[in-house]
Design a protein around this nucleic acid. Structure first.
Lengths: 200, 200, 200, 200
DNA sequence: AATGAATGAGCCTTCATTCAT
DNA sequence: AATGAATGAAGGCTCATTCAT
């Protein structure tokens, strides 16, 4: 074994290829055979690192959830007015999502294919994430900075639709960078909440 | 397909059960056996009415696309200011989607599973639909009624995310009716375009 | 379909080859692939007639249990003294077993491989069979024809060991016919019960 | 195997757990992984002490055969009348078997799974054991103490069925001790040979 | 003496689809 | 218009075993 370093190349490679193939063909459309072939190992190796094909999917969900929660928490708990923080959080989740478009495609498309227990865990984690985001909206509404004509919960469902949707239309080599789309979408969100212009 | 008769109970039932099962378990998760069992017929009957399992899915896409395009055209080409028409179209697509939630779940979740040729057709049809919607936004921006800070194309991508997303969180027996959600989301859209209050 | 006759050749052939191969290599040692190959059909055909490999085994158990119970009932409820009936039943089960040696090999060797629910059913059926046999012994003991030094239950366990064991040593092309072995074993049983000479 | 040391805890533990698991789930149903896990070692360790999974099974057979041959030889070559010695040998093999029920279950259930060469060796050893037992019967028949109506060979096959069968019905926590069953079965054997009452 | 990552063959099962009837 | 037996390919997964360390 050459790797004393903490990263396990085989495991890492398997996860990478699985992500790519699940995004490309769907979870059920990508066979374990294809994944291990792409990763240059055998099935046995895959089953040494992962319990099942489902486990592979679960790991992908875990990675996404962890990353996004970390970023949201850092921004939401950081400095700035609530409008600035909500704008930053919205722009950031859009940009992060465009930077990991495969993860996003898998996320919303394959939730129903997870084993029930796993799905429950993922949904709970996702709900916590949504709630943290929603709390930002509520905070602004309480301060009177945001309109409360539409319930905060619904605003979040509305906005995250656009995140969800990115996988359907966004292309890395398209006319707009992820950051640009993020800025625009965050603007739309803030405007729809009746907040004035935010940012530089 | 040889049948011109509108009322084809077997065909209808097959399509209905397929829609339900595809939404419930995903296209690949629902077997032809399960579908024909639920419809109370045999496999032979299904293959008499449909060319393949893929054809079943294609029909569902066709039905959704046809219905939504009809409704959009009627509203967009109808009377009223552009703000009123955009608001109505937005509210209507939300309400129609909540009323046919299974169709919506299937639509966004299974696109990648269609045979390439079919997928191409569906995408083209969908693009036409988006363009008609986008034209309404452009029309408003030209008139100076809507802000043009965010490109019309992007506004449409932003908004349709929320439609796409409905299948993930909306429940018929939840606290809000589809019409209420439609009104709220249309409000958010119009507000984000800087349009004043549009209402009944 | 050429078969209007009630026997289904494919199903029958599958069961026959499965019996042969399970006896030869054990249930786990014989693959479905080998069975269908021997039967000259494909796996799909097998799964059309049987739910699983386990189901195949279950059917074999059912066949044996049904046959033996029928024969025992007919003899036990028939005419003759209790000694004659016990002798006849004992000789018959030995002869029937030698005539279906593969069934017997499978029966005692694979019980532990049945699905728990199936195993329970088989055991219950087997117990009923044993009880009917035991009742004959008890009947003779009550009449004073058989010694009651050894409990009837234990006599049955003792005797059925010899049935069980046949698969281990008996060969169709050996020096003794099944009928001869049956006569000898029935004699040993009756003698061990202290009954005088029975039969012609 | 390089180790002459008698006390090899790891090897011993592996054999013990293998015996338990083979009896519980069958040879093919118990995986090497399960065995090493139960023994608290790793696969590497197992393959250090045993050549293969088959070797593990072979060792179990060897242990049983060695033990039973030793006991039989001691009794058969010991003092007492032939009736006494046969009774003692029969009772002893029953009692020894109930005391090592797992070994017995494995013995008769897994013979067909041994590698052909190994199986041949085991069968030869078993045959020698049977022959020594049979010689006792012949000795008694020659002396005129036992009836020779049934060939000695067949008497042995008859009796060893009951030994074989113990694994199917005997339970340590049942109403009878192994010694009691041994006494009863030995009585049945002797009686069936027409020998008068033997023993205290 | 012992590890554990990796192999590769094989296993049971599922499934969309076909075709004679 | 409809049946249902049969196909054939592929799928996820398990397992005994090896080998560098």
């Amino acid at each position: 074994m050459l790797c004393d370093v903490k990263d396990e190349p085989v495991r890492r490679r398997l996860l990478g290829e699985a992500t790519r193939l699940f995004a490309e063909r769907g979870f059920e459309g990508a066979s374990v055979q294809e994944i291990v072939l792409a990763a240059g190992v055998t099935k046995g190796a895959m089953y040494h690192y992962f319990d099942s094909k489902d486990d592979l999917l679960h790991e992908i969900y875990g990675r996404v959830l962890r990353l996004q929660m970390e970023r949201l928490t850092e921004i939401a708990d950081g400095p700035g007015t609530v409008a600035e923080r909500l704008h930053a959080a919205a722009a950031d989740v859009i940009e992060t999502t465009t930077a990991n478009l495969d993860d996003s495609k898998i996320f919303f498309r394959s939730m129903h294919l997870l084993a029930p227990a796993t799905r429950k865990t993922v949904r709970a984690e996702r709900r916590r994430y949504h709630e943290r985001f929603r709390d930002l909206v509520i905070e602004g509404q309480r301060e009177g900075v945001f309109s409360d004509r539409v319930p905060a919960e619904l605003v979040v469902d509305y906005f995250f639709g656009s995140v969800h949707h990115l996988g359907t239309w966004y292309h890395t080599d398209g006319p707009l960078t992820g950051a640009q789309v993020g800025k625009h979408f965050a603007d739309l969100l803030l405007t729809s909440l009746g907040a004035g212009h935010v940012g530089e």
